[in-house]
């Protein structure tokens, strides 16, 4: 029997959650015995070619590409996991929520202290670029998410224990120190 396929994505995140995944250290050898990692920044596989068992989402959605990506994941994965604060509640990128998009763009491209090279005062607006959303959305505000693993980043032990419990169907018992929001 083939191993379950796992995909991961980093949307509006900082890759910290992926780093934390790698922090499971030598258990990564056990992990590859349990699963195959498919589409993921780790493998650089970019497309879904078959149905996946698990999709792990880091980051919320701040632009149209994030949304499409997330919707792809929902379509192609049986189970979706929001990994980390950004996927769960927007996290740091969501600190712009509530500030009008025009103000954000002005600050980023026109008036910020580090934008003096933008002498023509233009906003990037090529059609190839993703379109910015009015605010940053937690992943479950776009698609249904099955499980949530908090942390910034989530502790490696939490990721490991949760994945093993999910893949083996065992009950999850977590030490207090493992579930944190920071």
């Amino acid at each position: 029997m083939s191993k379950p396929l796992v995909a991961t994505a980093s949307l509006a995140g900082c890759f910290g959650c992926h780093m934390s995944l790698l922090d499971i250290d030598e258990r990564i050898l056990k992990l590859v015995e349990l699963v195959d990692i498919g589409k993921s920044p780790v493998t650089d596989i970019k497309t879904f070619t078959q149905q996946y068992a698990v999709g792990i989402i880091e980051g919320g959605c701040c632009n149209s590409e994030n949304v499409h990506n997330l919707q792809e994941f929902r379509k192609n994965c049986d189970i979706l996991i929001s990994l980390g604060e950004c996927a769960i509640m927007g996290g740091l990128p969501a600190m712009r929520n509530g500030i009008p998009i025009e103000e954000c763009l002005n600050e980023a491209y026109l008036e910020g202290p580090t934008v003096h090279l933008n002498t023509e005062k233009i906003f990037p607006n090529d059609d190839e670029l993703p379109m910015l959303l009015d605010r940053v959305y937690p992943a479950h505000e776009i698609v249904k998410i099955d499980y949530f693993l908090p942390g910034c980043p989530p502790r490696a032990d939490l990721i490991w224990d949760a994945l093993v419990a999910l893949l083996t169907g065992k009950e999850l018992e977590l030490p207090y120190e493992v579930v944190k929001y920071d």
């Binding site: 949304v67 025009e102 906003f123 379109m131 910015l132 009015d134 776009i142």
Partner: peptide, 16 residues
């Protein structure tokens, strides 16, 4: 969630 309305504001600002 509606993508079209979510991107409307930013597209207007950057003129696309």
């Amino acid at each position: 969630f509606d993508l079209a309305s979510a991107v409307a504001d930013s597209c207007k600002v950057v003129n696309r």
